[in-house]
Amino acid sequence: MRSKKAKKARAETIGQILDELYPTTPVPLDHKDAYTLLVAVLLSAQCTDKRVNMVTPDLFALADNPHDMARQPVDKIQHTIRSCGLAPTKAKNILALSHILVDEFDGEVPGTLKELTKLPGVGRKTAQVVLSQWFDVPSFPVDTHIHRLAERWGLSNAKNVRQTEDDLRELFDESTWNARHLQIIFYGREYCPARGHDLETCVICRQIEAGEL
Rank of each mutant, 00 (worst) to 15 (best):
A6T: 11
K7E: 08
R10N: 11
A11T: 00
E12Y: 03
G15D: 02
E20I: 00
E20R: 15
L21M: 13
Y22W: 12
P23F: 01
T24W: 00
T25R: 06
P26M: 08
V27Y: 15
P28L: 07
D30P: 05
D30M: 05
K32L: 04
A34S: 14
Y35F: 15
Y35P: 02
T36I: 02
L37I: 03
L37K: 01
L37V: 00
V39F: 03
V39M: 01
A40E: 01
A40W: 06
L43P: 04
L43F: 05
S44C: 11
S44Q: 10
A45K: 11
Q46T: 01
C47R: 05
T48G: 05
K50P: 01
K50C: 03
K50T: 12
K50G: 14
K50H: 07
N53F: 07
M54V: 04
M54C: 08
V55D: 13
D58H: 14
D58C: 07
L59S: 07
A61G: 13
L62M: 15
A63Q: 01
D64R: 03
D64N: 14
D64H: 14
N65F: 01
H67D: 11
H67A: 15
D68P: 04
D68N: 14
D68I: 08
D68M: 10
M69G: 02
M69T: 01
A70C: 09
A70R: 06
R71C: 08
V74L: 02
D75G: 08
K76V: 11
K76H: 08
K76E: 12
K76Y: 03
Q78E: 15
Q78Y: 10
Q78D: 12
H79D: 13
H79C: 07
H79F: 11
C84H: 01
G85D: 10
L86W: 09
K90H: 04
A91L: 05
A91G: 09
K92P: 09
L95M: 15
L95S: 15
A96S: 14
S98F: 05
S98G: 09
S98P: 04
H99F: 06
H99C: 04
I100T: 13
V102G: 07
D106C: 08
E108A: 13
G111E: 08
T112P: 11
L113H: 13
L113D: 10
T117C: 15
K118L: 10
L119T: 05
P120C: 06
R124P: 13
K125R: 03
T126E: 11
T126S: 15
A127W: 02
A127I: 06
Q128V: 01
Q128F: 02
Q128Y: 07
V129W: 04
V130G: 08
L131N: 06
S132Y: 02
Q133L: 14
Q133F: 15
F135K: 10
F135L: 07
P138S: 07
P138G: 06
F140T: 04
V142Y: 04
D143N: 02
T144H: 06
H145W: 12
H145N: 14
I146H: 05
H147F: 12
L149V: 00
L149W: 08
